[in-house]
Simulated scan of single mutants.
Amino acid sequence: MTERNGHPAEAAAGPVFRTDGLVKVYKTGAVEVQALRGVDFTAAAGEFVVLLGPSGSGKSTFLNIVGGLDTATSGTAFFRDTELTALGDRELTRYRREHVGFVFQFYNLVPSLTALENVALVTEISRAPMAPEDALALVGLAERLDHFPAQLSGGEQQRVAIARAIAKNPDVLLCDEPTGALDSRTGIQVLDALVKVNEDLGTTTLVITHNVAIREIAHRVVRFGDGRIVAEETIETRKRPADVTW
């Protein structure tokens, strides 16, 4: 679905995400914290974007708003032609269910369920899901379907979490530090799974990381600082995860 160099082939189809002047202010009593300070951003269909920046730079707040988990104080955010910043709680819930897959640093698997059963939980409430077996095969776990989380390594558990996120066939996959709890060898396996999903399914993928080396697998890198986008870079020659040095 995507090209290995430059931007994905679908880029001309128009943005999947667009934000204009996105602002988020958190208030605790008399204290105000400005997490986002007017963020303008676009992501094309099938694009793999890495979001870099120090803690507190606004990356996670931004991801939560475009993912429908949080709301903006001002500015606009669009998913295709739908203005997310105009939706209520029920509409945002439907948006998340139908269009967005989430992967976080911690796997949040149900310990008493097998890998297959953990993935099947999501497909039961999805409109047009993948077979759970197919989702697990896509991330390299076809032989681990009947294993419980305690029988899986950290990297395997994270790949189950990715399979769970993609099993509902989301348009976008939003990942917040998906390799943050993993060593480099295991992290590379997880990144391989994310790249394969992006290439095979054409899923627009945004990945937050503190690991600057991961930028080399992206179509584009967006750097946050102090609640703003401070730099953007197109990666002309992408690397495979196995070729990235941590």
Rank of each mutant, 00 (worst) to 15 (best):
L121V: 15
G225A: 15
P241C: 10
N118D: 04
G225I: 09
T204D: 05
D171L: 00
R228M: 08
L121I: 14
E199G: 01
A135G: 04
H210I: 02
A161E: 05
T205Y: 01
S153C: 09
T179H: 03
R185T: 09
V119W: 11
I208T: 12
V222R: 01
E177H: 12
T209H: 03
S126I: 07
E143L: 07
N211K: 07
L182H: 12
H147C: 14
V110S: 14
H210F: 02
R127M: 12
G155F: 06
V172H: 09
A167K: 06
R238G: 13
N211D: 15
N118A: 04
E133F: 00
E143S: 14
L174P: 03
R228V: 08
A115V: 11
V190Y: 09
R127K: 13
H147M: 05
L141V: 08
L138H: 01
E177I: 06
S112P: 07
I217C: 03
D171N: 03
Q157W: 07
F224R: 00
H147A: 15
P111K: 02
A128Q: 14
L116V: 13
K239H: 15
E124N: 11
R220P: 01
V139Q: 01
A161S: 13
P178R: 05
R223K: 12
I208S: 07
A231F: 11
Y107T: 12
V222N: 00
A120W: 06
F224A: 02
A115R: 01
Q158H: 07
F106N: 14
A165S: 07
E236P: 01
V172P: 04
F104P: 09
H219W: 02
A193E: 09
A181F: 02
L116R: 13
G180E: 03
